[in-house]
Amino acid sequence: MGIFCQINLFKPPDGAFYSGQAVSGMIKYGLDEPMEIEKITVSLKGVGHLRLTERTNKKNRRHTYGSSEVYVDTDEVMQEGKIKIPPGSYELLFNFRLPQNVPPSIEYNKHIPRYAVNCQIKYYVRIKFARPGWFTFAKHFRKEITVASTIKPRLSMEPVIYGERSTLIQLFTSKPSTVIMKANVLNSVIPNGGKITIESEVQNDTNINIKTVEIKMMETYTFKAIGHPDVKVYEDIPSCECKTASIKAGATQNMPVDIVVPSDRVSLDNSKFVSRDYIVRITSVLPIPHRNVVLDIPVQIGDKVQRQEVFDLPPTYWEAMGEVDKEDDESDDEAAGDAKEGDKKEEKP
C-alpha cells in the first residue's frame, strides 16, 4: 500500500551526461489508495564527499578528516498545496541542466599506506512527496545518473620538450658524469582510447652502463581534506609499460614511444578535494649505489575537450636545464555542512 514510482531518464547514446547537458525524463508513479499530498518536488542533485582516515603509530590512534562539495541542487515544484490524489497512475516530465565544469561521478574506496580513503561524487534525480501532518514522513525516490568527464586543457596541445639531468658522483675521475634525459611529447591532451606519442633520448655521459630504461603510464590521485596536507596516490596502469636494452657508457639512445590509452582512463578535474591525473614516467635504471634518474611527463585524458585560448606552457628543456634559450539526500546536505566546518575527529580503535 502507498506510492509506487519509476524514474525514467532520456539518456544520451553512450549513457553518460556531460557538463552543461540537459537531464530530462519521465516519472511514472501510482497510488493504490487515496492519499493527501502537500507538495511534489522533483530535483537534480550533485554532491561529493571525501573521508580520509589516518592511522598513527602513537597508541594506534586514528584521525579522520573530511571535505565536501555541492555541485548542483535544483528543485522544481510540480504541485503545491494540500490535495487528495485519487488512486491511479500518473506521469510527470522533468527537464534540468547540469552546470558547466562539474566533476564526473566517482566511487573510490581503498586502503593505502597510513590511510583509508572514501571518496564519492554522485548525481541523481529525486522526487519527493511531502505529506501533511506532524507524524508523517516525506516519501523519496531517486535514480542516480552517470556524469562523465569534460576537460579544459591545462597542458599544451602542441609539442613540448621535457628534460632531466642528473650528475653522478664517481671516484677517480675529474670528468663530469651526467645522465641527460629529453622527451618530446607531441600532444599532452589525449582523447579516450587515443595514443600518447613521445620521442625520447637518453644520453649516458658516464663511465658506467645504464641497466635499462623503463617507460610506464601511471594514474595519480590527489586527495585534499580540510586540515590535512594533500595525499597523493600513484598506481601503475596495466599493459602500459615497456623496457629498453642497456645503454653503454658514453652512448646515446633514441626511443620512440607510443602508448595506447585504455578507454576507461580519464582525467578528473573541477573538484576541490580530489583530482585524477596521468603521467608517463621514464626511468633510467642505474646500478647500485647510484640513484635512478626519473622524468615525469604529465598528460590529460578525456573525450570532451573544451578548448581555451591561452596556455601557460611548461618551461622548455633548455629553460629547465638553465641553459638560456537524508537516509535520503538530506544526509548528503548535512554531511556537506559538517565537512565544511573542517573539524578533525580523533578516534580510538
Rank of each mutant, 00 (worst) to 15 (best):
S24E: 11
I27C: 11
K28E: 15
K28I: 06
L31E: 05
D32C: 12
M35E: 13
E36N: 08
S43D: 07
S43H: 06
K45Q: 05
G46K: 06
T53C: 13
E54D: 02
N57D: 14
K58E: 12
R61Y: 07
R62H: 11
H63P: 01
H63R: 15
T64C: 11
Y65W: 11
Y65P: 00
S67D: 15
E69G: 09
V70M: 15
V70I: 15
Y71K: 05
V72W: 04
E76Y: 07
V77L: 00
E80D: 14
G81E: 04
K82I: 14
I83A: 04
K84L: 13
I85L: 15
P86F: 04
S89V: 11
Y90E: 09
F94C: 10
N95V: 04
R97V: 12
P99G: 04
P99F: 01
V102M: 05
P104C: 13
I106Q: 07
E107F: 09
I112R: 12
R114D: 15
Y115L: 09
Y115D: 03
N118A: 10
C119A: 14
Y124P: 00
V125D: 10
V125F: 10
R131Q: 14
P132M: 10
K139C: 00
F141A: 10
R142C: 12
R142T: 10
R142H: 13
R142I: 08
I145D: 09
I145N: 07
T146K: 15
V147Y: 00
S149F: 03
S149G: 01
T150D: 14
I151A: 03
L155C: 09
Y162N: 02
Y162H: 12
G163Y: 02
G163V: 08
S166I: 05
L171P: 04
